[in-house]
Amino acid sequence: MNHPTSLWKANISNQTALWQRMGCEALSIKGEGWLQSLSWPYKLWPESGKTALTIRDLVEAQPHLHARTRVPFWSQNEVTLPWQQQMPPVSSEQILMYQGLQDQPQTPRQQNPKGIRLNSVQTPSQLYAWWQICEQAFAYEIDIQVIQHLARQADLLLLLAEKDNEAVGTAILFTTGQVAGLHQLGVAQAAQGQGVARAMMHQLLAIAGECRAQWMTLQASSKGLGLYEQLGFSRQGVVRNYSPKNTELA
């Protein structure tokens, strides 16, 4: 799987598969199949990844959406489609990125000059630290019960970064097919600006290779975009998230 369109779809599929693991319900909206988060991350997305509906259609069909609901619309190669220009203001936006793991240098995980260690979350105290840091790093509320549920998934890695026995970072690594999707990479405020995210990324790439994935995918915010590009990740599209509650119907 090395065709750009296939990799783009694989990135989206990995992301939506993780949302499903977090808990969702199936809906039929104007004849289309949709999935809706039961709590955080408060997503409402088309089951096929494609839709002919607009935000206005969704508001009319689902008037009682949660105030924090966000609807993602994906565009390959960061193109803004004509109908998207008529959308309400974007709530948030991330760049879809990927990198081939087969070209990564085989660096032993233990070689880490920053002294950062990535460990799977195993204990309640580790899970609580993960939850606190991730909320702090992303500046939004996270349902801790969702994190508890993810920690029990055998094919998903909930990872806590530690330095000098202090928790300093979070990450989720979720493998689907040949893709290892990276999610919720966050650094505690007190540890930011110290190269923690870069040190974590080197280990995450090694772990993904150990999981026999061929590609790593992620969705980068503007804050993390520079680091990912420095590490060799390529852009492949954009996901724009819209809030139906910000849509005014005439």
Rank of each mutant, 00 (worst) to 15 (best):
Q189R: 09
D164L: 05
W74L: 03
I147L: 15
A199V: 06
G224N: 04
P124E: 06
D103H: 11
S91K: 02
W34S: 04
K223I: 14
G177P: 02
T217F: 00
G209P: 01
S243D: 09
V121W: 02
Q62K: 13
I29M: 07
L96N: 05
S222G: 05
A197N: 05
W19L: 06
D164F: 04
Q122T: 11
P89G: 07
M97S: 08
Q85H: 12
I144T: 04
L65R: 01
L44G: 03
A137R: 01
P113F: 11
D57E: 11
N119V: 15
Q236M: 15
Q148C: 07
Q20G: 03
Q230R: 15
A208S: 14
L249D: 06
Q104D: 03
E47R: 07
I147V: 15
V187S: 08
V121K: 00
I207L: 14
A139F: 11
L127V: 10
E47L: 12
L156G: 02
A188I: 07
R70H: 06
A154K: 10
A139R: 07
Q20V: 12
T217Y: 01
P41V: 10
G186T: 13
E47T: 07
S48V: 10
V196C: 11
K223V: 15
Y242M: 07
S92E: 12
F174P: 00
L101G: 01
E166I: 14
A171G: 06
I12D: 10
N77S: 09
E166G: 01
S91W: 07
E25Y: 08
T175E: 11
I133Y: 03
H3V: 10
G181R: 01
S13M: 10
Q102C: 10
L38C: 09
S91V: 08
S48F: 13
L101F: 05
G177E: 06
L157P: 00
K9T: 12
T217H: 07
P41A: 09
N11H: 02
K163G: 04
S125G: 01
P46L: 14
L118D: 03
G31V: 13
L205G: 02
L249T: 11
Q102W: 12
K50E: 15
L227R: 02
P41Y: 03
L185W: 00
Q86I: 05
T69L: 05
L231C: 12
G100Q: 06
S75P: 02
N112A: 13
P88G: 10
L160R: 04
V196R: 04
E166N: 12
A52H: 06
G169I: 08
L81G: 00
R198K: 11
S222I: 11
L96G: 13
P113R: 13
Q132M: 09
L205V: 13
P244A: 11
N14Q: 08
T176N: 09
W45T: 13
L182S: 01
I142F: 08
W45H: 05
P105C: 08
V90Q: 01
V239N: 03
I133D: 04
L65W: 09
Q214T: 13
S222E: 15
V179A: 09
Y98K: 02
T107D: 03
L249P: 01
L173R: 01
P244G: 03
A206G: 03
A52M: 00
K50N: 07
R56A: 15
G232H: 08
K30M: 14
R56T: 14
I95S: 11
Q85L: 10
